[in-house]
């Protein structure tokens, strides 16, 4: 169990680190998805119970995992997917206009 939480922390920090330091636009988007997955993993862990089964309300299954985080995780996946899609669209557009993917060269806006 604990090791999973450690993984979440590592993934989260790794993602943030990628977003902040990488210059390549694609890599920045990767960073965003990494953070996203770490959060989804965290959601799963929050609802997890040892030996639990899928949340089906039936007498057969006594230990079920918490259903709410699963619903949340689904929503987060959807949102994350759309955010990533929009970002990638923008990356394509930027590449067409600026002919580069280096974030340091995309700086017409100053001041």
């Amino acid at each position: 169990m604990e090791i999973a939480y450690v993984a979440v922390i590592i993934l989260f920090c790794l993602g943030i680190y990628t977003i902040i330091t990488k210059k390549n636009l694609i890599k920045i988007v990767f960073g965003v998805t990494i953070v996203e997955s770490s959060l989804i993993l965290l959601l799963m862990l929050v609802g997890y119970k040892p030996d639990g089964t899928a949340p089906i309300l039936d007498k057969e299954y006594e230990i079920v995992v918490d259903p709410i985080p699963q619903a949340l995780a689904l929503t987060t996946v959807v949102i994350g997917g759309s955010v990533t899609a929009v970002m990638l669209v923008m990356v394509i557009k930027i590449h067409r206009r600026y002919r580069t993917l280096n974030i340091d060269e995309i700086r017409k806006l100053r001041g």
């Binding site: 977003i19 970002m87 990356v91």
Partner: peptide, 10 residues
């Protein structure tokens, strides 16, 4: 516009 929006989104 595109550049600004990208920064905004990130």
């Amino acid at each position: 516009g595109i550049e600004g929006t990208f920064k905004y989104l990130i």
